[in-house]
Amino acid sequence: MSKPKVALYWCASCGGCEEAVVDLAEDLLEVVEAVDIVFWPVALDFKKKDVQAMKDGEIALTFINGAIRTGEQKEMVELLRRKSGLVIAFGSCAHLGGIPGLGNFYDRESAFERAYLTSPSTVNPEGVLPVTEADVDGFELTLPEFWNTVHTLDQVIDVDYYLPGCAPPADLLMEAITAVLTGNLPEKGAVLAPAKSLCDSCPRSDSKPLKISISKLKRPHEVEPDPEKCFLEEGLICLGVSTRSGCGERCINVNMPCRGCFGPMDGVLDAGAKAVSAIASILELEDEENATEEDILELLRPIADPAGLFYMYSLPSSLLRRSQ
């Protein structure tokens, strides 16, 4: 019997998700024993035409990482969708938009202006900007269209499952592959990670008081956090309260508060707004009755970049998706 075919592809991403596959280490040998990897541009020399030549649905499972921002990415993920039985959005960018999704604070015009005209390292005296078609010495050259807005994978194609994380940890990846191979899959649309919040699995949860209240927020560069203590108790914003568990507490273990790469728990429509809710709820003022709007603003002042913090990994997946 022939082995199930697996494909891996990347879109607007940093390459960290590809590293996550390599992080399977010896387990990767087990994986290639069980499946045939038929397309993986970062590692193997298969081409788009090889995918085009396959029958529809011939690939059992495709992992796609990265957000979607160009016409080429759309064309490739639509092709892979057609050829695949299952598609897993792999990593924060495909799942929620991720760090490239912060591009939704801007638009195409301002991104081009910054990248090709005004950034200090740019030398572009003729002010050349990318165009989709250009005539050069009688040859017609083309580039994929660069969109105004960054999208999540499921805004472009139908997605079967989500494997969250920046990057997804090896154990969850291995579990996902095993689930597919054994047919032991949850309901379509599921996030293949625990349903609990990060606080539930946090190694510092023992030190977390029953009720947290923060009267003075601090920024990470202002304190050296106690490696045993709950960050919130120290006045540092940690998004573990509104973020899904399953990451292996990698940031917490190197004394860095959670920034939400695993996305929200089930049922949450807007990860950023949920985080705003969670953090604002545990703040307090001494004299709340007589507090003015200015007192509240003063309390919130250390949150210098709230949208960048609360929507760090999820802006394209948010209800509003981008700046107005």
Binding site: F105, V276, E288, L299, P306, A307, Y311, R322, Q324
Partner: peptide, 23 residues
């Protein structure tokens, strides 16, 4: 329930957040 204070803090933080998105 002191829910009014919580609502005030939440709406102020939400305003700060959405303002960065041009709202």
């Amino acid at each position: 329930h002191d829910g009014n204070y919580s609502a005030r803090r939440r709406m102020t933080l939400l305003r700060n957040t959405l303002e960065q998105l041009g709202i």
